[in-house]
Write a protein that binds this DNA or RNA. Structure first.
Length: 454
RNA sequence: GGCGACGUAGCCAAGUGGUAAGGCGGAGGUCUGCAAAACCUCUAUACGGCGGUUCGAUUCCGCCCGUCGCCUCCA
């Protein structure tokens, strides 16, 4: 299959370095606020990446970090007068819950910055020893000019960056673009001991350290949002390659486009966002996933309720095709052409929009086979299988915490069937309308009434 | 100012050097007591604008307009 590599700017043939196991690292969140749909989109996409790679027969080691110590956490915790670690812990728990709700499979490992201090300190020391970093005034900085090719991921040069003129000069830095590996602690801040004095790790070093610690010197895929390309991923490359001497640090860099709300990027710090929690209250997980995966992952995606509502109706159509019962005896529906289209689309840099198009076409064929009295069990299971590769459950809305209403609704639907037979249509229609008002849709088929929630 | 991305039907959104997937919506039809669902047919003389290359461009190149992102924390 082919994957677009940000580093080369081209689609390249992909296979894991060892031929079997894909080492994949996806940048996680800084848990200081609720997750928004931009996070949901990114992690949904990388979940689909992982599922598809496994579908191809690879095993995938998927590592995703939590940046559980950082300026924002300290700031928020101070304002709320809680312990920074507690604050982070709370948002991490929320994050797990929400990602589970979105049917995003758990990563193989979720390392946290605060649990990687020894690795981080070792790496910083190693960088100092090799001349790539220098302590200054309790901080430690990376010497950007020492790293060949710094800026190549972002396609920038040091000169170009300086032209931005938005860089705050720091008297302790040798070069304005040098970045912190270690930040000396100020009074009252959380701190860890180090050879350079008490402090905490800089933002970029944790990812380098975790990658190295858990996945080795070279990993197959490193993913994240496009907003991480610079400076975060650029700096990761600089740190990791300088430390290990191994090139490349990452074989395939993958970056998803950003979710926009209205005309702007969704952003935690700017407060422009729709939280995952809010979205899940309005829409089914399948609808959100279908919405996310209906556009190519590298393009920006505009979030709008109308678009997700459209996806909700589409999801319902897929669900219904995946769950109809009562196949006939005519010739089998052959789903191979649809499977091929799906695979071909996904092989082309995870072209999920086209893969989804194949799913909709297959769903139509299943419905047709039903109408024509043909067999479709194999096609239907293909539909479910491929949907699952994208992480779509195609399950109906669950009844939630309520006791199971099924026997009672069944009874009403059955009684209504009797009324219809007796041509008591007014009463039958009234039952249907009242069930609808309670959130149960009743449909009449040749085999009698059937119902679903929603 | 520098770097990058994008601009396709009412809306969302793929894609190709030789006249445009899919979804939602809409119109008509089949089925139905009605409705819903499902299925069938239709719904972009053409892909921001202007030039260029080409037998031929929406697809390549240049310029312009518009939108967005990054350059500072950010999936």
């Amino acid at each position: 299959m082919k994957i677009y590599n940000t580093l080369s700017g081209r689609k390249e043939e992909f296979a894991p370095a060892d031929g079997k196991t894909v080492k994949m690292y996806v940048c996680g969140v800084t848990p200081y606020a609720p997750a928004h749909v931009g996070h949901a989109m990114s992690y949904t996409f990388f979940d689909a990446v992982r599922r598809y790679l496994e579908f191809l027969g690879y095993s995938v080691v998927h590592v995703q970090n939590f940046t559980d110590i950082d300026d924002k956490i300290i700031e928020r915790a101070a304002r709320a007068e809680v312990d920074p670690a507690k604050l982070a812990e709370r948002y991490i728990a929320e994050f797990y819950d929400e990602m589970d709700s979105l049917n995003i499979r758990r990563a193989s490992l979720y390392p946290r910055a605060t649990e990687e201090l020894p690795t981080i300190v070792d790496m910083i020391q190693g960088l100092i020893d090799k001349g790539y970093a220098y302590p200054a005034n309790g901080d430690v900085y990376f010497r950007v000019r020492k790293k060949d090719g710094y800026g190549s991921l972002a396609r920038r040069t040091l000169e170009g960056m300086l032209a931005g003129a938005r860089i705050e000069p720091s008297s302790h830095k040798e070069h304005p673009m040098d970045f912190a590996l270690w930040k000396g602690a100020k009074k009252g801040e959380p701190e860890w001991p180090s050879p350079w004095g008490p402090g905490r790790p800089g933002w970029h070093i944790e990812c380098s350290a975790m990658c190295h610690h858990h996945l080795g010197e070279t990993i197959d895929i490193h993913g994240g949002g496009q907003d991480l390309i610079f400076p975060h991923h650029e700096n990761e490359i600089a740190q990791s390659e300088s430390y290990t001497g191994a090139k490349p640090f990452v074989r395939f860099w993958m970056h998803n486009g950003l979710v926009q709300l209205g005309e702007e990027k969704m952003s935690k710090s700017l407060g422009i966002l729709v939280t995952v929690k809010d979205a899940l209250q309005k829409f089914s997980p399948d609808a959100l996933r279908l919405f996310f995966l209906s556009s190519y992952y590298r393009s920006p995606l505009k979030f709008s309720e109308e678009s997700v509502e459209a996806a909700e109706r589409g999801a319902q159509r897929l669900r219904s095709a995946a769950s109809i019962e009562g196949q006939g005896t005519g010739p089998d529906l052959d789903s191979d052409p649809y499977r091929r289209r799906f695979v071909e689309a996904m092989d082309d840099d995870f072209n999920t929009p086209q893969a989804i198009a194949a799913l909709f076409d297959l769903a139509r064929q299943v419905n047709r086979a039903f109408d024509e009295g043909r067999r479709f069990d194999e096609a239907q299971s293909t539909l479910r299988e491929l949907a699952e590769v994208l992480g779509l459950t195609l399950r109906g809305l669950e009844s939630g915490t309520q006791a199971d209403i099924a026997p009672f609704v069944d009874l009403l639907v059955e009684m209504r069937g009797e009324l219809r037979k007796a041509k008591q249509f007014e009463l039958a229609d009234s039952i249907r309308a009242r069930l609808q008002a309670l959130g149960v849709t009743v449909e009449d088929t040749a085999q009698g009434g059937r119902w679903r929630k929603g």
